[in-house]
Amino acid sequence: MREMICICCPMGCRLMVDDSDLADVKVSGNTCPRGAKYGKEEVVCPKRMVTSVVRVEGGDVAMLSVKTKDAIEKSKIFDALDALKGVSVNAPVKIGDVVVKDVLGTGVDFIATKNVSAR
């Protein structure tokens, strides 16, 4: 049995996760279905959304904020961040534009989270 705090939303529900059988993980203490999913994933294969910034050339701001379109495996966070090193994009950029495609072969893209106009 593992006790954990759900991070799906700021409610921070306290979950009790029965991980004695990884094929049949039981979650209690959650107040929504996302909590049950998180509790299960957290013991089987923990995932996180990764957010950071990259340089933008010719824009009205210096930095473009980005995120992984979906959560990626927690163990790959720093490799994913390394994939952003030296990346620079040209303005204009729109929210949702792909910045790095298929990060580390996860099938997940880094996408822009800010609209940047050309200077």
């Binding site: 954990m4 705090i5 759900c6 991070i7 799906c8 939303c9 700021p10 921070g12 996180r48």
Partner: peptide
């Protein structure tokens, strides 16, 4: 702070 932030 929020719990989720302490965890994450």
């Amino acid at each position: 702070g929020l719990n989720r932030n302490i965890v994450q």
